[in-house]
Each structure stands twice: as structure tokens, then as C-alpha cells.
């Protein structure tokens, strides 16, 4: 028996909106730790890892570890039917072939339940070791989204370089080139407007902008994004999910031909 009650149901809507274009089907794993997911995009270039810790739910009952295979676009369709302020409860029996999403309006005057068929998904799970990164950039998530969107109108790839000068996002295309430099800046009115660059070593990596733009669908989840870089490793683009967890996107770099 699984029963997870999330008062901030809107968070789950935002999580699904940030996943559904990248991944078609995925297993949601429920354990005492929390509600999690790891999935790759269909071309196995990017990976997403979601964790919503059990403490973040108002009620979290998970009698035994369960893996719920769901089509994310169908799940997103169902969650779209919840109000942004609704309380969302996810329910499933141990041997269930469906999952129930229950939506309660904040003043309890409307209660809806949606039942979605589960599916068997044979997915590969990857072990991701904790890594020390050469550079970690924290910046406003909207700024990062803007940069990815702007650069993708000019080129297909972005070179992200971190030096003492700051973090530079560069692209080139048929019509020309573009470089955007963001400097370390903590003298801002609000902490979420800060850009914090921690650098052990300079690093420069090339990534496909198509994936970066897909990751930025998570922008409504968090004011800040963390971009962790090391030479010859996938970049990690992380958005916090309130105080209860995170969504991390891993993207393999491109190499020179």
C-alpha cells in the first residue's frame, strides 16, 4: 500500500512539466526515503534524477518498495486537472496495475480522483558516484533559461567555460557568434538574484542546446539553478524542489570531431 499526500500539489505539476518533454516513460520508485525517479531520454544523451524526500509529504505511507511505471505525458495530463493550490494524494496498492491521483481543493469543497493505468517499463538504472567538480555555478534560473533560449536562436551547441573572469556561454552558427559572460555577483538585493561561482580549476565543455533548453522547463520550480562542471564529465544542472528534494539533469558533453 502506497499513500503519499502532498499539500503543495502544484509542485508535482511543475515537476511533471519539467520531465515530460525529455522522458516518455519512467519508473517512479517509492521507498522509505522518498519518491524518486531516474530516467534517460530516448537517445541516452541526458539523464534525469528526481528525489522528493518522504519528510516533505504531509503523509507518507509506503509499506514496501514499489516501482510505478508511468507514461509521463499521460501523468502530466492527469496532473494538469489539479488546481495549483490543490492537495495531491498518490495512491497505489502493492500489486496494482493502476495508480490513483486524488486532488482536494484547499477548502475541501472539491475532491477529484483520477485513475491512471500503470505500465511495465524495462529501464536501465545507472550508478552516479558523488563527484568533486572543477567548477560550480549558482545563478538565477530565469537568467540561465534566457541565455539558453537566446543562444539557441544562433547556434546548436553551447560552450560553457568557467574562469576567474566568470562563466561564459558561447555559441556559433551560420549567422555569427555570441558570447555571454556572467560574473560572480553577491551584491544583490535578494539572495536568489546572486551569481556565485566556485572554481577549483578552469573548465570548458560543449553541450547540445536542445537538451539545455529542455532542462530549463524546470525553471518554475526554483529561483536558482546550480550548474556543476568537470572536464570530460556530464554537466549536472540542478533545481531544488522546495525544501523537499531536487531534480538533477545530467548531460553528456560533445567532443571535437
Amino acid at each position: 500500500m502506497l499513500e503519499l499526500r502532498l499539500v503543495q500539489g502544484g509542485l508535482l505539476k511543475k515537476v511533471l512539466d519539467s520531465l515530460k518533454d525529455l522522458v516518455n516513460d519512467a519508473n517512479f520508485d517509492c521507498s522509505a526515503t522518498g519518491f524518486s525517479l531516474q530516467a534517460m531520454d530516448s537517445s541516452h544523451v541526458a539523464l534525469v534524477a528526481l528525489l522528493l524526500r518522504s519528510e516533505g509529504f504531509e503523509h507518507y505511507r509506503c509499506d514496501r518498495n514499489l516501482s510505478l511505471g508511468m507514461n509521463l505525458s499521460n501523468m502530466a495530463k492527469m496532473l494538469k486537472c489539479a488546481g495549483n493550490d490543490d492537495i495531491v494524494t498518490i495512491k497505489a496498492d502493492d500489486a496494482a496495475d493502476s495508480v490513483t491521483f486524488m486532488f482536494e481543493s484547499p477548502n475541501q469543497d472539491k475532491i477529484a480522483d483520477f485513475d491512471m493505468k500503470l505500465m511495465d517499463i524495462d529501464s536501465e538504472h545507472l550508478g552516479i558516484p558523488e563527484a568533486e567538480f572543477q567548477a560550480i555555478v549558482r545563478m538565477p534560473s530565469a537568467e540561465f533559461a534566457r541565455i539558453c533560449k537566446d543562444l539557441s536562436t544562433i547556434g546548436d551547441t553551447v560552450v560553457i567555460s568557467v574562469t576567474k573572469e566568470g562563466v561564459k556561454f558561447s555559441t556559433r552558427g551560420d549567422i555569427g557568434t555570441a558570447n555571454i559572460v556572467c560574473r560572480h555577483n553577491t551584491s544583490v538585493d535578494k539572495p536568489e538574484e546572486a551569481t556565485i561561482i566556485e572554481m577549483e580549476e578552469t573548465v570548458s565543455l560543449t553541450f547540445a542546446l536542445r537538451y539545455m533548453n529542455s532542462f530549463t522547463k524546470a525553471t518554475p520550480l526554483a529561483n536558482q539553478v546550480t550548474i556543476s562542471l568537470s572536464s570530460d564529465l556530464p554537466v549536472v544542472v540542478e533545481y531544488k524542489v522546495a525544501e523537499m528534494g531536487h531534480i538533477r539533469f545530467y548531460l553528456a558533453p560533445k567532443i571535437e570531431e
Binding site: 534517460m40 541516452h44 544523451v45 541526458a46 539523464l47 536501465e124 538504472h125 545507472l126 550508478g127 552516479i128 558516484p129 547556434g155 546548436d156 551547441t157 556559433r172 560543449t206 547540445a208 564529465l233 556530464p234 545530467y250 548531460l251 553528456a252 558533453p253 560533445k254 567532443i255 571535437e256 570531431e257
Partner: peptide, 14 residues
């Protein structure tokens, strides 16, 4: 531009 690497090249299967 460049050759796209695969994410599975970096992490082992569990």
C-alpha cells in the same frame, strides 16, 4: 558540431 557522447559511457549500470 562535435560528436555527442552517450550518458551511459560515464556511469555504470546498477
Amino acid at each position: 558540431r562535435g560528436i555527442q557522447r552517450n550518458i551511459t559511457e560515464f556511469y555504470r549500470s546498477t
